[in-house]
Design a protein around this nucleic acid. Structure first.
Lengths: 362, 362
DNA sequence: TATTAGCACTCGAAGAACGAGAGTGCCAAC
DNA sequence: GTTGGCACTCTCGTTCTTCGAGTGCTAATA
């Protein structure tokens, strides 16, 4: 059921206005501000039809119109002008990206903070990691009671741990253990580190003090931690700036939901591999708590087998265009920096495919 | 100007009731619930005097009474019964502390999260670090283009960094650099790592490829990062659960302030060295944004020259007793685990000195 | 046939009026 | 010094009213 060009134009105008003002838009305002070349009466007729078609709705009989999720969907898919970020903005994002990533290596937190700052909505970043293995095992002897474990993972992350013992070990033992672990603990997955393997290593090392199990425990811990998808949410408080969250309870509910960030994962299930930006509008979200909010998600290549996700959460009345553009750029920048592939030309990367989930349009 | 015992008892009852209900307390309720052995009329007289003395106030003529900051101050200093945590609670805190600290070594974030969970108020944790030095320098040779830097600091923190080079180095060079750095870069402070030192090391190592400066840069980065006070706020959204923050704008202001956690530092200036718990009530706070909230702060020994701070933020109508008890226990537990001193006996540690800032009582 | 002007109608938001109830202050009695 | 009693005050929630924005419909117009 294709709708006329004019209807589309009017719908776009309604959404644009509503995004800006958060107030239902009336025919008069529309006739004045959007240059549609027809009178308010005509617009009224069109609006009434758009309501019938399900793209708009009225909070009450004598109020203006507000987009429905379906209206937003059409807007996002076809109508909104893909916002081109200015060169300055692009450069700003890239600059901040560089800065942030150097500052600390706790990247995922930084990515989410940055996304939140740029868009002024709460943002979350998460990574899913496919099974990681250990690439290298080093033990640094500090003194008779102390050593440092250094683990290098297949994805090139390096983890360390200082171990302090209540008894002494000699340097030979340390060397022996190091060799043994490098021989039998590298290249295997978490579930291959069995009690059997540990005890046989223990025997081989002639270790009667339980060192082997300390080291193995650390290995397990690191692998477990790296395999677990990590999530980081920031800028929750920005929600309170939005008029739709004047209701404290509503805001509280969503914020609590966000703070336990992992929950968002179901939404991320259908992980995109491309670099498109995806928009989930209101009821399209699986999570009950998000049913009247929208989420914009971009995914990026975070290096060896790892994909990262950046998401921005806001009211359905969200500035989709701007958020999508910024998030796309951010994701592209991250892929460029972290991804395994060769770096693309450093020019402005504005190619942005907005793809949504049409499945529940009826 | 000492006030009578009965007045104190009544004041305490008012504060207790108000903390629980968040509603102004009237003479009748007081006569019924608190066992004061006198009628509501008598209480009314006493209440009127307490208002005159400045310990209570009335939101309007025909409402109950609400404590003033001065009233809270007296309550905190003298009246409130120091809450003894039950054995179960104590053990729960200790257990969670152990768990949290093992889970990740990003301790400060965990401390703040834990404090927030325990008290159900937003919490922040911060550390100030006095100059840290490097204790040990290791370089692990991975392959011709790659090595891992491992730095152990005087406070026993270990940091690492994977370095990937666009050219090859041989293992000898790595060894030479490692020895040189251990000889001349350990035990010195950040500002002693001068360009001069770097270039002389570079010459000594016969390094023409700039490796020395890469390593030195990392050392500087780590030292800088460790010296900078780090702050971490969590549980901001719990504010919204408090009736005094039904006003979205008020909540938003405070939450934004909290999110930029570093600002809190001025309040922490007068860093306690003891293990007492300190309470700052409403206007006693320096920061404008906290003028009608209260902060409970505990400090702990975080190992070599480092002190950490845990703070909990809430409305002035805060459950000071419970929060102080929990925070004190948390701080004690942290000191025990992180501090340099020998571990105190593992029994229940309930000794809790509440000390406030009396300076602006008039 | 599509568009427009005009007009009666609807419905929510904001304000005014009002009664109920909680709590006070004061007074006289104990 | 304490208590019961009572008139008074002020907020809160309810109801009623008004105001105005915005609609839907109809008849006139291009």
């Amino acid at each position: 059921m294709a709708i006329s060009e004019r209807k589309k134009k009017i719908l776009a105008a309604v959404v644009d206005a509503y995004i800006q003002t958060a107030e239902p838009v009336g025919s008069k305002t529309l006739a004045q501000n959007a240059c549609l070349g027809c009178s308010s009466a005509t617009i009224r007729n069109e609006l009434a039809e758009l309501v019938n078609l399900g793209y708009l709705e009225q909070p009450h009989t004598s109020a203006g119109r507000v987009p429905t999720p379906m209206g937003y969907r059409l807007y996002v898919n076809e109508l909104m002008e893909k916002q081109k970020l200015s060169i300055e903005e692009t450069e700003d994002i890239n600059r901040r990206l560089n800065q942030k990533l150097q500052e600390l290596d706790d990247t995922i937190g930084n990515v989410s903070r940055l996304a939140s700052q740029l868009t002024d909505y709460p943002a979350l970043a998460l990574t899913t990691q496919t099974a990681v293995t250990i690439k290298r095992f080093d033990i640094i002897y500090v003194d008779a009671n102390t050593f440092i474990l250094v683990l290098m993972l297949a994805n090139n992350a390096v983890r360390n741990k200082l171990v302090h013992l209540p008894f002494s070990v000699d340097q030979n033992m340390i060397q022996r253990l190091s060799a043994l672990f490098n021989a039998s603990f590298t290249g295997i997955a978490e579930d291959e580190i069995t009690p059997l393997l540990i005890s046989s290593t223990e025997r081989a090392a002639n270790d009667s003090m339980g060192l082997t199990s300390v080291i193995a425990a650390f290995a397990l811990e690191v692998l477990g931690e790296s395999a677990a998808p990590a999530a980081f949410v920031s800028g929750e408080n920005r929600l309170l700036g939005q008029p739709e969250f004047r209701d404290v309870d509503k805001a509280h509910r969503l914020m609590s939901y966000l703070t336990g960030g992992g929950h968002i994962l179901p939404a991320a299930e259908s992980f995109g591999t491309g670099e498109e930006v995806r928009v989930l509008i209101g009821p399209e979200n699986v999570a009950e708590e998000l049913k009247d909010s929208s989420v914009v998600i971009a995914s990026y290549d975070a290096g060896d087998n790892t994909r990262g996700l950046i998401g921005v959460i806001g009211p359905t009345r969200m500035d989709y265009s701007a958020v999508a553009a910024k998030l796309g750029l951010l994701a592209a920048g991250l892929s460029r920096r972290l991804g395994g592939g060769e770096a693309p030309p450093p020019g402005v990367n504005n190619k942005l495919i907005i793809k949504g989930d049409d499945s529940n349009d009826r």
